[in-house]
Design a protein around this nucleic acid. Structure first.
Length: 483
RNA sequence: GGCCCCAUGGUCAAGUGGUCAAGACGCCGCCCUCUCAAGGCGGAAUCAGGAGUUCAACUCUCCUUGGGGUCACCA
């Protein structure tokens, strides 16, 4: 009777969603889905000082954009709510009191001033709280608490022995109990610390797999002791390798440029971002493919494929992934994306969106690049004689002038301006004049674009611009070359 | 610094005692080609070092080195 797998994403609303957060959410989601289990969302808002307005809605928005739908959460409810920690204070207080009663925790009356002094005093040697209040007689402590003296509740760690737990990724880990600090469970303001709220909620919400970044690996023994003190069964621990930046340092909110929102703004598709981070620290093993939809990942994901070493986030790989997704878009969807970006740039001037989309699809890396890529279409750039020279085609400005002079009347009298008629005319011209395609097509392309490198060729450019703008540009090019 | 974790090309990685050590990104070259892409083909590039164990180590053990994480009334 294996228990139904249940994972949770438990972000704190203290800032933007960065890649590390999203990766945790993704793996938590995938572990649940791959085992037919549940995925829940819990908001950990126990830090009232770092709370950021709007952070919660950003969390919802991000999960939805990525398709990581949860089965339980503050917005949709569930059997083990509430799903916001600030609404669960009574639970934390209840269990904290129980722990004090059973001798696994104690009130501490030390001031923050004393604690910071403690930290400065014993450099390196003794780390953490010196356990001064641990020795206070319980009855005496209870009296002081009763009298309203400010205090926190601390966990009473075993002074000797060792604690061992098994992580699904990192294996068996053992630490000496004397290394463990008497950590704070309940703060002076009555709010729990993450360390405490997590254990309580994961148990109460029946979370079976605690999935989180490996930065929590070293505090996991403390949680284990807490589970034991409460007499609760421990969940499976799945610690994820960190995602680090090019500098090898943990990717954090401070890195700034690595938030999900920023990547979207740059023009990366959510699907590509998801695919990318799925492969940071995980690989399918038996499949060399790397492009997987979320639905496919749900089927093949396995904790067995999770690596231990930190993974460097590579933008060039993300670029490639994004290109793959863009190329895989249906023409209609892609054309509408292009429209949204190009319409405002072209303004009143007409353009052939269909052709523009076709030309751009194999060339765009990220949506944010498009504006610059099509600037030569949305505005007329100045000419330069050098633009017309091409060594390979044996083309130079004066030859281009001859070619364009010959082409102008032919183009003007072309009955229709299409992707069939234009190349037909140009090829005919090549045959008649004995000139190479590179010379004829190249000349026209540069005349229309006023730019040496363009996405698409002469006919594509002409079609996108339309007859009137194309002929106007040709006129300008001739005037320039003549002058 | 104490404690914990990690270590295959520049990056992501497959591998689990016997392989010519997959694949992908990036890079280089060739083909295609009106430019640039896309596409096709090919190439360079990796088991951090040292001791063991073994007939045999990328695979197991230990040490060294390197990297990371953590030591808050933050999560």
């Amino acid at each position: 009777m294996p228990k139904l797998t249940k994972t949770r994403f438990a972000p704190s609303p203290t800032g933007i969603m960065h890649i590390g957060n999203l990766r945790s959410a993704l793996y938590e989601y995938l572990i649940a889905r791959s085992e037919g289990g549940k995925f829940l969302l819990r908001i950990e808002d126990t830090d009232r000082e770092r709370y950021v307005e709007g952070a919660v809605s950003a969390i919802y928005r991000t999960l939805e954009t990525c398709g990581l739908f949860h089965d339980e959460g503050p917005d949709i409810g569930g059997p083990n709510g509430p799903y916001v920690q600030s609404e669960r204070l009574r639970f934390y207080r209840q269990y904290a009191e129980e722990l004090v009663r059973s001798g696994h925790a104690y009130p501490c009356f030390c001031t923050v001033e004393r604690l910071s002094g403690l930290r400065e005093g014993e450099e390196g040697e003794f780390s953490g709280y010196d356990r001064r209040c641990r020795g206070i007689d319980p009855a005496e402590a209870a009296r002081r608490v009763e009298a309203g003296e400010p205090h926190v509740i601390r966990q009473k760690m075993p002074l000797d022995g060792e604690t061992t737990f098994t992580d699904a990724v990192y294996g068996t880990i053992t630490v000496q109990n004397k290394e463990l600090e008497d950590q704070i469970l309940l703060k002076t303001d009555g709010y729990p610390t993450y360390n405490f709220a997590n254990v309580i909620d994961d148990h109460l919400m029946e979370v079976t797999h605690v999935v989180r970044g490996s930065e929590y690996l070293s505090s996991t023994p403390k949680y284990c002791i807490l589970y034991d003190a409460l007499g609760w069964e421990k969940p499976a621990f799945v610690h994820l390798p960190l995602i680090v930046g090019e500098d090898g340092k943990k990717l954090s909110k401070r890195h700034g440029s690595t938030s999900f929102g920023d990547l979207l703004k740059d023009g990366y598709l959510p699907e590509a971002i998801i695919n990318m981070i799925a492969f940071l620290g995980w690989a399918p093993g038996d499949d060399t493919r790397e492009i997987f939809s979320l639905a496919e990942l749900e089927k093949i994901f396995s904790v067995k494929g999770i690596n231990k070493a930190p993974a460097v986030f590579s933008y060039s790989k993300l670029d490639w992934m994004n290109e793959q997704y863009i190329r895989g878009l249906s023409h209609d969807v892609w054309r509408e994306m292009i429209r949204k970006i190009a319409d405002p740039l072209f303004g009143d001037r007409p353009y052939e969106a269909d052709m523009l989309a076709r030309v751009l699809q194999p060339r765009v890396t990220k949506l944010g690049d498009i504006g610059e890529m099509i600037r030569f279409l949305t505005e007329r750039l100045p000419y330069d004689r050098e633009l017309f020279s091409n060594k390979r085609a044996k083309l130079d400005a004066s030859l281009a002038l001859d070619i364009l002079r010959d082409l102008q009347p032919k183009l003007e009298s072309l009955p229709d301006w299409t992707e069939e008629s234009l190349p037909a005319l140009l090829e005919r011209t090549c045959e008649e004049t004995g000139r190479k395609k590179g010379q004829v097509m190249g000349s026209l392309r540069v005349a229309l674009a006023a730019q040496q490198v363009t996405p698409g060729g002469a006919t594509e450019t002409a079609v996108i611009l339309g007859r009137s703008e194309s002929l106007a540009r040709l006129e300008k090019a001739l005037a320039f070359l003549n002058g």
